[in-house]
Design a protein around this nucleic acid. Sequence first.
DNA 1: AGAAAACTTAACTTTAGGTTAACCTTAGGC
DNA 2: GCCTAAGGTTAACCTAAAGTTAAGTTTTCT
Lengths: 225, 225
Amino acid sequence: MAKKPKILCVDDEQDILDLLTFNLEKEGYDVCTALNGKKGLEVAKRELPDLIILDVMMPEMDGMETCREIREIPSLQNVVITFLTARNEDYSQIAGFEAGADDFITKPIRQRLLVSKIKALLRRSGPTDAKKDMSIGGIEIDREKYLVTKDGVQIQLPKKEFELLVLLSSAPGRVFTRENILNSIWGNDVIVGDRTIDVHIRKLREKLGDENFKTIKGVGYKFEA
Amino acid sequence: MAKKPKILCVDDEQDILDLLTFNLEKEGYDVCTALNGKKGLEVAKRELPDLIILDVMMPEMDGMETCREIREIPSLQNVVITFLTARNEDYSQIAGFEAGADDFITKPIRQRLLVSKIKALLRRSGPTDAKKDMSIGGIEIDREKYLVTKDGVQIQLPKKEFELLVLLSSAPGRVFTRENILNSIWGNDVIVGDRTIDVHIRKLREKLGDENFKTIKGVGYKFEA
DNA sequence: AGAAAACTTAACTTTAGGTTAACCTTAGGC
DNA sequence: GCCTAAGGTTAACCTAAAGTTAAGTTTTCT
């Protein structure tokens, strides 16, 4: 399978988080959580999830505000956001969509519905960027074919190198920290030595040209044309 | 003219199938049918239609379930699916869209409306690609006859091998993961050992040439010229 | 029912490619 | 201009994944 979709759940009630985590992990998703909006933002930046479930009612920074801030972050531009709201609060849905929500889930949570909704949302969003072929500075990336073309020459990259390239090129110019990279490609739990990333970067530079992969010492790497 | 679009109709009532077939063939579509969800899936996998009309109410596997399973199959990712539903059952439309439906047709069927709706859906879904006879790198695949020709020599492949070939060749160059392949050919629920796929791939390589079937380690397989 | 074909499995081998360790180079703070 | 920590390089090593083969099973056909 392609990488597990990552879902971030933000709610101030631990019970709800547990419920969500249980149901979503059972479906094979990679779940992370945060207990308030502020932490949610932090985790979102670090983990770069595919979908975020946000409780509307939270102390400090509420769901709406969090959603708005998330939409400001370039690397999270395309993340799917759904609100968690009490059934009778549906008046707030208008405001929710304005804040940048993609959908709503009402409490009490119906587990089957939750799962099918999440699936549908990810399906809808998935193909959108899967179809997008990147093409930057003579380098074309075809995710369906797992194939890279440099100046018209096809290059078959091994899995990890390809994933790394896809990640870096998903936001050209943006610096990805080592932590970002580890989280995205290896997952939270796996631990690999520090030099591993360097080695893969080296391979990419070798195959696709040194100039495209810039090192920001003490921070991370970025991809440029 | 472009090739006839192919439409699959799935309903447990023969009368309805006849009605649909009559109307659609009159409009120049290529129609195939199935009497229940399970058969519908099978036919869909083999025929790769452009559009599927699914009755919601069917014994055994209902339309929703069938739809969900179809959406899991990579080679049918982009097929247009419309449900056939009684007018007053519209509450189910929410669930329907979640299951991956593109539109709804209500019973009783208004023939003119049916046809114009189908036309509109097919127009929207974009140009039909030729799916009937593949012919790549000296290999011809005739889905109707279950027959493969390599360099002019006819080869009779067993069912599973043929299905695997049809799947891989439905998008030459695209990588199909093991999970993709299992879902498409065996179905979500069936569990077969990991080596099973390898063995079938091996048979295909043996019969049709090693070079056409590429392994992407850790990802899956792809078919190429 | 019996034979043949197709399919799956299990046990084993092979290999790509991912990781590491040891060493080398460089940037940038002092 | 040193010194240090971060990053670069290389090759050996290791492992999970794929290849192979043959022996069961199941299905299909006569």
